[in-house]
Structures are given as C-alpha cells and as structure tokens.
Amino acid sequence: MNTAFERAMAAFEPAHWPLAVGFSGGADSTALLAACALRWPGQVVAFHVHHGLQAAADDFELHCRKVCERLGVTLVVHRVDARHAPGDSPEDAARRARYEAFAHMARMEGAGAAIKSVALGHHADDQVETLLLALSRGAGLPGLAAMPAHAPRNGLHFYRPLLAVPGADVRAWLVGRDLPWIEDPTNTDARYTRNRIRSVLLPALAQAFPQFRATFTRSASHAAQAQELLVELAAQDLETVGDPPRIATLQTLSRARQANVLRHWLMRTHGTAPSAAQLDQLLDQVRACTTRGHRIHLKVAAGFAERQGDFLHWYNARPSPKTSL
C-alpha cells in the first residue's frame, strides 16, 4: 500500500457489522464505496439520500444506481424533505435529514440484515474546513474537535476512515480506477461559508503552511481527547449534584465545573445546548441564588431554565407537534 488513501483503507476495520457506505455519487463517497466493495465483496450496502433540493437530484440517484451496478453493490435510497425552517441553517437542516435517513435505511428490508455501521467519505480537507468553521463561530472544545473518526448516533456507528487523507489523494485514487463521479453544483456556491473556506482559505494555507492538513487534524484530535476528559468529569459531577441539579451543591463547584456539568446536563437530559451568553447568565444566577426567594427564570436554547425549590429545572418552550392520525 503506497498512497495515503490505500493506507487509510487498509487500516479501516469496522467493529460493527453489517456495513453501509453513505453514497452521494461525489468523488469522496465513490472512492470509499469502491474501496470497501473491493475489500469486502458482497458484504457492503450503499445508502443514498435523495434530498430533493435540486432539479438534478433524480439524475444523482440514477448515476448512483449505475455505479452500484458496476461495483456489484446493493443500493438503498431514501427520499427526505431537507428544506430548512426560517432562521435555520440549510446545511444543518440537510445534515439532520441525512442522519435520520441513514437510521431509517438501516432498518429497511432492502438493506438485508439490519445495518450496524455507516462509513462516510469525509477527508482531511473536510476536517480542516469543519475546524475553521468552528473557529469562525468561537466554538468551544466540542466544535474544535471537528468530526470524530468513530461516533455512535441514532443507534448506528458512524466511521470516517479518510480523515487523515487529503482530498486530492482520494480523487487521484479514483482517477486511477476509471470510476466516474458527479460534482454537486452547490459546492461552488459562494453563499456558503464552507465553500468560501474551500476556495479561498485552503489554497492560502497550502502556500503558507504546506503541512496544514496533518497539523490541523492533529489539533482537532487533541481537542477531542480533552473533550472526552471534560465529559467524564461532567458525568462524575452530575452524579454529585443530581438530575435535576441541586443548586446548593452546584455552588460548591468552581464556575468552570458548574459550566461543564450544566452543559452536560442540558445535552444529556434535554438534548439542548446553551449559547455562551446564556450559560454565563445562568452561572451568575446560580451564584446569586443565596435566599429562598431568589427566582431563576432564564431563556436557555429553545426553552427556559427555572428554579423550583432547591433544584434547577429546564423545560421546552416550544409546543409539542400535533400528531396526525
């Protein structure tokens, strides 16, 4: 094995089978699917998400079918409505829809045995873009950790075996196999920050710091390791303060540990995350809560943090969606 792509694929060994590959028809997912099909013939399924956001979406699906026929791979397709709500990021809406679609396809009969793992074609350039996006937004460690090489989500295990491989190396391997791919026209749309990073910042970084992909990826790995330690500490502190947290016990912790355990509690118990400003306000109120009459009622994410007796509670301000029968 000589190339970075081939070395990465040789080292890829999913711990959970059966395996699917997220397959958009683009260069990265095509290379990953072809390499997996070559290594594990007859054991890999392709998952294609039809977002319906472009007029060419049907053509994308047709292209994927032809490639899968050539590779001898079963293709499972799921159509989603990935339109974003007003005020939401279109990229985030599409990403959420995609993960939900993967979970749905993993349970479909067309996938054969229930899929346990999904491999995704994100590579080193994607990892750098994600890190730079996080920096531009003032993200904390979870954001600076960028994309994990392995992570459980929606009952599946997601693997990204190409995070250390430059995008150019992935395409070079693909060209050598004479496999076709499609170019998503939105990848050149300058309205998206990620595309501006790709077209402007990455070439400048390559000129100033030729090894930036390796060093940035290493920094993201360090951030991910530090975040794991913070999660372990938060879990221990949550055992101490309780769920919901007892305010007096919270006050025995340092402000940094209060912030850490409250973020962990909000995400683990309520699936929500406060902004930095909201968390600062909440910490100020926890510190000031020294009398029985002190009231806490603060906007936090889509709901409110509120004092009820000796405890801190959170409730969702949005009404539950109506179920159609």
Rank of each mutant, 00 (worst) to 15 (best):
47 F>V: 14
47 F>D: 02
49 V>R: 00
54 Q>I: 03
54 Q>V: 03
55 A>S: 11
57 A>H: 08
58 D>F: 13
58 D>I: 15
58 D>R: 14
59 D>Y: 09
60 F>I: 00
60 F>S: 06
60 F>V: 10
60 F>E: 14
63 H>I: 15
64 C>Y: 07
64 C>M: 12
64 C>K: 11
65 R>V: 13
66 K>F: 03
67 V>R: 09
67 V>A: 00
68 C>I: 12
68 C>M: 11
70 R>C: 07
71 L>H: 02
72 G>V: 12
73 V>H: 11
74 T>C: 12
74 T>A: 15
75 L>C: 10
77 V>E: 09
77 V>A: 11
78 H>V: 10
78 H>Q: 08
79 R>Q: 05
79 R>L: 00
80 V>R: 10
80 V>C: 06
80 V>A: 03
82 A>F: 02
82 A>K: 08
85 A>S: 06
85 A>N: 08
85 A>W: 13
85 A>V: 05
87 G>S: 09
87 G>E: 12
88 D>E: 15
88 D>H: 14
88 D>N: 11
88 D>F: 08
90 P>Q: 06
92 D>K: 14
93 A>S: 15
94 A>R: 10
95 R>Y: 01
95 R>D: 04
95 R>V: 13
96 R>A: 04
97 A>G: 15
100 E>N: 10
101 A>V: 09
102 F>P: 03
102 F>S: 04
105 M>S: 06
105 M>R: 15
105 M>Q: 01
107 R>S: 07
107 R>I: 04
108 M>V: 12
108 M>Y: 10
109 E>S: 08
110 G>C: 11
110 G>L: 13
111 A>C: 10
112 G>Y: 08
112 G>D: 13
112 G>C: 11
113 A>W: 12
114 A>K: 15
115 I>N: 02
115 I>S: 02
115 I>W: 00
118 V>P: 05
118 V>H: 07
119 A>P: 06
120 L>A: 07
121 G>Q: 10
122 H>W: 08
123 H>K: 12
123 H>R: 06
124 A>R: 03
125 D>P: 04
125 D>T: 08
126 D>S: 02
129 E>L: 05
129 E>D: 04
130 T>Y: 01
132 L>A: 01
132 L>T: 01
132 L>K: 02
133 L>P: 02
135 L>R: 08
135 L>A: 07
136 S>H: 13
136 S>I: 14
136 S>M: 10
137 R>V: 02
137 R>K: 13
138 G>K: 11
144 L>S: 00
145 A>T: 13
148 P>T: 09
148 P>F: 00
149 A>R: 08
151 A>G: 09
151 A>T: 14
152 P>D: 12
153 R>T: 09
155 G>L: 01
155 G>F: 04
157 H>G: 07
158 F>C: 06
161 P>N: 07
162 L>H: 08
163 L>R: 07
164 A>F: 00
164 A>C: 06
164 A>Y: 03
166 P>C: 05
166 P>K: 07
167 G>W: 03
167 G>A: 13
171 R>A: 01
174 L>I: 10
174 L>Y: 07
175 V>S: 09
177 R>N: 02
178 D>K: 14
179 L>H: 09
181 W>S: 05
183 E>L: 15
